[in-house]
Design a protein around this nucleic acid. Structure first.
Lengths: 101, 101
DNA sequence: TTGACACATTCAAATTTGTCGATATGTTGG
DNA sequence: CCAACATATCGACAAATTTGAATGTGTCAA
């Protein structure tokens, strides 16, 4: 498969795009740990219910775009840059031969 | 907006991924014009109904991933490499600062 | 141990999406 | 003009998705 539909689908929702952008901004200071982003921060940011956020985080982690780590009662999230590179590379591989021609 | 959700959503469907791959392969020889791909070719390839294919092509063209041109009674399609580059660049821009760090 | 907390899971409602039959629109060949 | 053709649009339906209230699970503090 040249293009990973699951990965792109995960990025095809405005709410999840906001989550990715928030993770990229490092989320400032987490409610519990500075420099890390926990689920509660994302709930606070989005104004969506906690189960809704939990659902979106599962989609992002299953797609490999976000890494999740449980510490105590908190779930900390971080972007998986390799995965973004991979998907970006798939798009580049489509474009490259056509732009060259 | 750092990530264009509409573009990624358009790539988040297996059928549309197949269409993109087919367009990338140049589709061999079109039923009407060699070197070009018309809607009827995609219908033949996918085994889906013609309205279904028409619907998917609209999504791809609205997302800017595919260029459509009508010639007589045929619609010819081609990938829009700049758009793939753009979306790939968005993903790269996410990954780059994180990989560097 | 108990209560509060952070998050996951379940379930259900609302919305969106994918699909195709029927039909409409526009085009070409005769 | 007419008939065949290529595609778009419409209408309907099933499936998937998004959402959140209710609840379950595991963890920490006291």
């Amino acid at each position: 498969m040249l293009l990973d539909a699951e990965g792109f689908r995960a990025l095809g929702d405005p709410v999840r795009v906001r989550i990715v952008q928030f993770l990229l901004d490092q989320g400032g200071v987490c409610c519990a740990n500075p420099g890390l982003v926990c689920a509660c921060d994302i709930v606070a940011l989005l104004g969506l219910a906690q189960p809704t956020v939990s659902h979106h985080m599962q989609i992002l982690t299953r797609a490999g775009l976000v890494l999740a780590e449980k510490r105590g009662r908190w779930m900390f999230y971080a972007l998986a840059p390799r995965r973004f590179e991979e998907l970006g590379g798939q798009l580049g591989a489509i474009a490259a031969p056509l732009v060259a021609a």
